[in-house]
Write a protein that binds this DNA or RNA. Structure first.
Length: 250
DNA sequence: CAGCCGATAAGCT
DNA sequence: GCTTATCGGCTGA
């Protein structure tokens, strides 16, 4: 599989059987499995882990149902141990009841409520004691689209079109709503556990480059280049015209 | 399409 | 008391 050059990430695994290799959305492709990443994957600085998470699969299993999407947009938030502390990070004033998960071991979900009505999900990075994390900002849905639409209060579009896919999980709180994630049920879960309801899986989808831009919706450190997205992917949140540069995945 | 605005409550000072 | 890592609806161009 490869990253796409237009619109949506592309699954080529089945293309040879059905057409001449034209790009097609990966939700029509064959995502069916994958393996959790090792703990060591998460035990690096968030600005390294964040771009590496692009293309990985976030899976929520609930009552036999599988809701999943490919990660297409992330942001890094630096822990207070960093040389220049990150004023936009929840952890920047040290541990509190809310952000405790961030100071624990790497590879755990930090789910918090925001604006009284939404949730956002991060993955903790770095060894215990260091509170770097990666905010998951957008998915390209690959499984459980009908359930996601229901969770989001949207009408199911069949066959799925790009605008429908985009509305499902393009935004950090849309993502949580689509997958049914909440602080009470998912904060602190280990995303690399084989038995966890919430996992991040690697299915060998290859990503070579990321677009780098400033982070969204923050007031401090607005010029830090810590937002990473899949080049040209339609499910990335916000405006489609990026002014960011491309960088190789570290 | 870009920009503004209100909803709504946990979390922290 | 004040802020907030958002979203969706509305306005105006």
């Amino acid at each position: 599989m490869e990253e796409s050059t237009q619109g949506i990430a592309v699954a080529r695994r089945q293309d040879s059987a059905t057409n001449s290799g034209a790009p097609r959305p990966s939700h029509l492709g064959t995502w069916d499995s994958g393996t959790p990443l090792p703990r060591s994957f998460y035990e690096h600085a968030p600005e390294i882990v964040a771009p590496r998470l692009l293309g990985k699969i976030l899976v929520h299993r609930r009552n036999g149902a599988v809701l999943a999407g490919r990660i297409v947009e992330v942001e890094a938030y630096l822990g207070p141990h960093h040389a220049t502390p990150d004023p936009a990070a929840h952890s920047h004033r040290g541990p509190t009841p809310r952000n405790g998960v961030l100071f624990g071991p790497a590879g755990h979900a930090y789910v918090y409520s925001i604006y009284g009505q939404y949730f956002c999900m991060n993955v903790s990075c770095e060894p215990a004691g260091q509170a770097g994390c990666v905010l998951l900002r957008a998915l390209e849905p690959v499984a459980g689209l009908a359930a996601m639409a229901r969770n989001r209060g949207l009408a199911l579009a069949e066959p799925a079109n790009v605008e429908f896919l985009r509305r499902l999980a393009s935004g950090p709180s849309r993502l949580c709503q689509a997958l049914g994630l909440a602080r009470a049920t998912h904060n602190g879960l280990d995303v690399m556990s084989e038995t966890s309801a919430l996992q991040i899986l690697d299915d060998d989808f290859q990503v070579r480059e990321a677009v780098v831009t400033p982070r969204i919706g923050i007031k401090d450190a607005v010029d830090w280049l810590l937002r990473f997205s899949l080049p040209g992917n339609a499910c990335v949140s916000g405006r489609r015209n990026f002014t960011g540069n491309r960088m190789p995945i570290p």
